[in-house]
């Protein structure tokens, strides 16, 4: 699966990937299925599927509200698995899960990653599982060929090399302090962080948190290997509900063009 992730970067002429995020089950799971296929058609190289959690402490209001809507509509981890299985009949786009440690822990690491492997999930992103705690999950996920994505933040400083050295799949570079959400300006100077990563590994790194327009995507992909966009897409779902598909398609297409220009 890590080859599949690497290929999602390499297949583009400039080696940069555009990574999108969608909250599963918002406004309902059939719509999520539709949105994933639309994003794949529009050129998303990797799609992160968020499994909703009652208390998503890394999320800003946009994704937090999407979690609330999805849980109210009855989303469960098993329903997400079923939906992904259906997606796999239509698309072989690279897929990851983004969720919180408790959902995976409570499901059972072995059981969860067995299912991930069955339906072709390449990686998991778990924002409340830092380097110090990852072993309990990663030791199981790797058995099922699912990468545990490492995150670095603007505050990581001396930790960047340590984290990057062990990273698999891709490295998620958090652009800013705080929670997910659209930001008009990403002020952190990320070049030193990317520099530290490149000193110790060839694993691609992509920047996320706050990216919402093609110019930002181009700029961020320019200094790294890709751009990750979440809240800006979820905001489209918030606005158009079940009818969001075409709007998501257009948005993803324009963002991908930005990334390819980088």
């Amino acid at each position: 699966m890590t080859d599949k992730i690497l290929n999602s970067f390499k297949k583009n002429p400039n080696g940069k990937a555009f990574i999108t995020f969608i909250t599963a089950g918002d406004p309902d799971i059939d719509s999520t299925y539709d949105f994933i296929l639309k994003m794949a058609d529009a050129g998303a190289d990797i799609i992160e599927i968020g499994i909703p959690f009652s208390d998503p402490v890394a999320e800003g209001p946009v994704i937090q509200n999407a979690n609330v809507r999805a849980l109210k509509a009855g989303i469960t981890t098993d329903k997400v698995f079923e939906m992904v299985k259906k997606v796999r009949e239509k698309s072989d786009v690279t897929l990851c899960f983004m969720t919180y440690a408790n959902l995976i822990f409570h499901y059972g690491y072995d059981k969860f990653f067995t299912k991930c492997q069955e339906i072709g999930i390449s990686a998991v992103i778990v924002p409340d599982m830092p380097y110090e705690e990852k072993e309990e999950m990663e030791s199981v996920s790797l058995k099922y060929d699912v990468a545990f994505i490492s995150m670095v933040a603007p505050t990581s400083e001396d930790r960047v090399r340590m984290i990057a050295r062990e990273a698999k799949g891709f490295i998620y570079v958090v652009s800013s302090m705080g929670v997910t959400g659209v930001r008009s300006d990403i002020s952190t100077d990320l070049k030193p962080i990317i520099g530290h990563i490149r000193e110790v590994t060839d694993t691609p790194c992509a920047i996320g948190f706050g990216i919402s327009n093609p110019e930002q995507a181009e700029k961020m992909a320019g200094i790294s290997d890709g751009a990750i966009v979440g809240s800006a897409i979820v905001r489209i779902v918030e606005k158009y509900g079940k009818e969001a598909g075409p709007y998501i398609y257009d948005f993803v297409k324009s963002m991908k063009e930005g990334v390819l220009k980088a």
């Binding site: 402490v57 890394a58 440690a101 924002p127 409340d128 599982m129 830092p130 380097y131 110090e132 705690e133 072993e135 995150m151 670095v152 933040a153 603007p154 505050t155 990581s156 400083e157 001396d158 930790r159 984290i163 958090v174 302090m177 705080g178």
Partner: peptide, 21 residues
């Protein structure tokens, strides 16, 4: 095991990377 602050199997530091330092 890198995890710190354990009371038996309980405890640890399950928090975003942003706060680790």
């Amino acid at each position: 095991m890198n995890s710190k602050g354990r009371f038996g199997e309980f405890g640890g530091q399950y928090i975003s990377e942003t706060l680790m330092n």
